[in-house]
Amino acid sequence: MREPRFTVREAKAEDVHAMLGLWAATPGIGLGVGDDEEDLKRFIARNPRTCLVAWKGGILAGAVVGGFDGRRGYLYHLAVRKDYQSQGIGKALVAEVLDRFREIGARRVHLLVFTTNQQAVAFYTRLGWRLRQDVLVASWDCEPGKDCGC
């Protein structure tokens, strides 16, 4: 008997625990500030159309979260369970989220990948993403009482 195909749908609050578990188990995904259940639920509530999960036979096979700032789309934490890779799940999640970004008016989408995550770099390159060499990413953790130095 043939194994059922996967289903892609919008992420819900009840998916958050499984999503965080998937990301924690996926090499190359960096979890940090803002990657907890409450913050992820808030992110999904702000970006319901661009946070997606792929389910296959009752198992979370893949997930991606996307955010839109009114100009650009941003992809974060695309992951597919190791035992479900090479079945088109990652590609389907990216295609669906890009369609949704187009629908809401994004003209460009950015994503962040650790330079050490060569599997992800190769995946996105195969899909036609352009690796940028002209920008750097700088981060600031907004901790209570932390002086910004301004």
Rank of each mutant, 00 (worst) to 15 (best):
L52Y: 06
A45P: 01
L52V: 14
N47Y: 11
F68N: 02
L60D: 11
V121E: 11
R130E: 15
N117S: 04
Q133M: 03
G57Y: 04
V94Q: 04
R107Q: 12
L75V: 14
R102N: 09
H77C: 13
D83H: 07
A95V: 07
F101I: 11
A95S: 10
E96C: 07
G73S: 14
A120R: 13
D134S: 07
N117Y: 06
R81H: 09
L60Y: 14
R102I: 03
F101G: 11
E96A: 12
G105P: 01
Y74C: 09
A79T: 05
D69K: 09
V137D: 00
W55D: 15
T125V: 01
D134H: 06
N47R: 05
Q87N: 06
R49V: 09
V80G: 09
F43W: 03
G57H: 09
V113Y: 08
K56H: 09
A54P: 04
V121G: 03
A122W: 01
R71T: 11
R107F: 10
R49I: 01
L111Y: 07
E103V: 01
L136M: 13
V94Y: 07
L136G: 00
P48V: 08
G57T: 03
A92C: 11
D99E: 13
G90Y: 10
F43P: 00
G58A: 10
Q85L: 01
G105Y: 08
Q87F: 07
L75W: 10
L93T: 05
A63Q: 09
H110N: 03
R46W: 05
A95F: 08
V53A: 13
R72E: 05
G66Q: 12
G57L: 05
L112P: 01
V65Y: 07
V97I: 15
P48C: 03
T116R: 10
E96W: 02
G57A: 06
A92L: 00
G88H: 02
E103N: 06
H110Y: 15
V109C: 08
R108E: 15
G90C: 07
Y74R: 06
V65Q: 15
R126Q: 11
G57R: 09
G90W: 01
L93R: 08
K41D: 04
G62W: 08
L112C: 05
R46T: 02
R42H: 04
R42D: 14
S86M: 01
L127A: 11
A79Y: 06
G90N: 04
L75Q: 08
G88P: 02
W55Y: 14
G88C: 02
K56A: 13
I104W: 01
L127C: 13
Q133S: 10
